[in-house]
Structures are given as structure tokens and as C-alpha cells.
């Protein structure tokens, strides 16, 4: 728990690819994110966990320049996100949760679109989009409208959009939701390869197993407050991550009350 506060002092840019300082967001009178401080070390696979409505998406949106914070700062690759809104764009890849895509484009067209918006040249966009569609198993569906994709396929094409411009930092909101085990394995491989080569991944999830298996760092957030942050070993503190998580956010007292819930 104190690992979060002990890291408040600013650290050299080359160590941390992203830093949040006193980040706060209110929706009306409801405090969605409260005075959040967090450092994301370069090359880490950073898990962001918390119960539903904890403020994960809100925090990630403020980090990626999609939602203006009420107070505090977000720094990415040494740049203040809200002072240089366009400067960080090419360095960050984003996969938002529950936002739409331009779904009347085909998968291939959507990737081309995103690549060109990032200002990439055509030849690179073409070769990378083919690579991505193949790697993510969307090759056969690349000419179908994204509107006709299943939830898992939509997630995958979204991931492809997030990485096509080869960013330094990937911010992925629930990347494994609705993804089948085979695709999950492929995505995990891609992300591991990316971090090994010096890239950084921040991903949110509420499946502790995924985070424990994949991530080296983890931050626990509940009710807009950061409860713990650090390496997975530090946060888990000798337990498995799920038990430690439930202990921190306050789990169900006992499951033994529904005595009638038995197959008769």
C-alpha cells in the first residue's frame, strides 16, 4: 500500500514512460478518481485491476487524452498530456472499452483509415495491416463490415487499430474481454514480445488470473482510490493475487447463506 505513496517523487523520464500526479475526476458530485499517483516503468506490463465502477476506464481515459481531468497531471514520455494534446498521440496506442468503431468499414479499411489518420505512409499501412489481420486470425474476415463482427473479433480489430502505428505505450481497456482462449494466447504473445523489445503496456482487467499470469506490475483501484501498486509479488504479498485483491476491496463475508440454493 505504501509503495504507491513512496513513488510520489518524480523519477527520471527514461525509467517511467507514464506518470500520474494527483489525477482527479468528478462526475457531478461523484468522485470517480481521487488524487491518483502512479508511475508506469518503461518496459513493464502493467495490470490495472479493480471492481466494476472503480475508476479504471476514467483513469485510462485521462492518461490517453480522451477525458480532461479536473485536477492533476498525466505525463507520457516526459510530456504533459493536457499541455501538449497532440504531441503524445503518435507515441500512444489506445484500445478503449465500449466505444464504437467506424463499423461500416471492413476490417481492412478500418485499419487503413486509422493508419492514415496517424499520418503513416500508405505502403507501411498496407503491409502492417495485412500482418496484423493475419496475426490476429482476421484474415478471412478482413473484407467484412466490422458491424458484422462478433464481440471477440471487434476487440481484436480494435487491438490492431491500437498498435498499427507502433507506439511506445499501449493503453488497453479490458483487452481480453470476450476473447476466446486461442486468441487470448496470441494477444498475450504479441504483448509480451512488445514489452521485451522495450514497449510498455497498461491493461485493465477484472480477471485476476490473466493479470497474474501476464503482468509484472499491478495497481489496485477501488472507489476512485489507489489501494496498492507495485510489482505483482509486492502487491500479492505472499498470497495469490485474487485473494489479496478481495481482501483489499472487501469481499463477500460468506457464501454459505443461500442454503436453499441446492439442486434437489
Amino acid at each position: 500500500m505504501d509503495s504507491a505513496s513512496s513513488k510520489q517523487t518524480s523519477t527520471p523520464i527514461d525509467v517511467n514512460v507514464a506518470s500520474l500526479r494527483g489525477l482527479t475526476k468528478y462526475f457531478g458530485s461523484m468522485c470517480a478518481v481521487n488524487q491518483l499517483n502512479l508511475d508506469i516503468p518503461r518496459g513493464s506490463m502493467y495490470g490495472f485491476v479493480g471492481p466494476n465502477g472503480a475508476g479504471k476506464t476514467t483513469t485510462l481515459s485521462m492518461l490517453t487524452g480522451m477525458l480532461r481531468p479536473d485536477m492533476g497531471q498525466a505525463w507520457v514520455t516526459g510530456l504533459d498530456v493536457w499541455a501538449n494534446p497532440t504531441a503524445i498521440r503518435s507515441k500512444v496506442g489506445v484500445l478503449p472499452d465500449r466505444l464504437r468503431l467506424f463499423d461500416r468499414l471492413s476490417g481492412q479499411e478500418l485499419l487503413t483509415y486509422v493508419g492514415l489518420l496517424y499520418g503513416m505512409d500508405k505502403a507501411t499501412v498496407a503491409s502492417r495491416s495485412t500482418d496484423l489481420l493475419m496475426a490476429l486470425g482476421l484474415g478471412d474476415d478482413s473484407r467484412k463490415a466490422v458491424a458484422d463482427y462478433s464481440a471477440g473479433m471487434t476487440k481484436k480489430i480494435g487491438l490492431a487499430c491500437a498498435v498499427i502505428h507502433a507506439p511506445d505505450l499501449l493503453v488497453l481497456d479490458e483487452p481480453f474481454e470476450a476473447i476466446d482462449p486461442v486468441s487470448a494466447r496470441v494477444i498475450a504473445e504479441i504483448l509480451r514480445g512488445f514489452t521485451t523489445d522495450g514497449g510498455t503496456v497498461i491493461l485493465s482487467s477484472h480477471v485476476m488470473e490473466t493479470v497474474e499470469k501476464l503482468c509484472d506490475h499491478v495497481a489496485v483501484i477501488a472507489g476512485g482510490n489507489l489501494l496498492a501498486a507495485g510489482t505483482v509479488e509486492q502487491v500479492a504479498a505472499g498470497q495469490d493475487l485474487e485473494s489479496r485483491f478481495i481482501e483489499m476491496v472487501g469481499g463477500v463475508s460468506s457464501a454459505g447463506e443461500l442454503t436453499w440454493l441446492r439442486p434437489s
Binding site: 490517453t64 480522451m66 494534446p85 468503431l101
Partner: peptide, 8 residues
């Protein structure tokens, strides 16, 4: 959102 995050 992609227009916003891509910095177009």
C-alpha cells in the same frame, strides 16, 4: 475517439 487519439 479515433480522430481524437490519432491526433489528426
Amino acid at each position: 475517439w479515433i480522430h481524437l487519439t490519432s491526433g489528426v
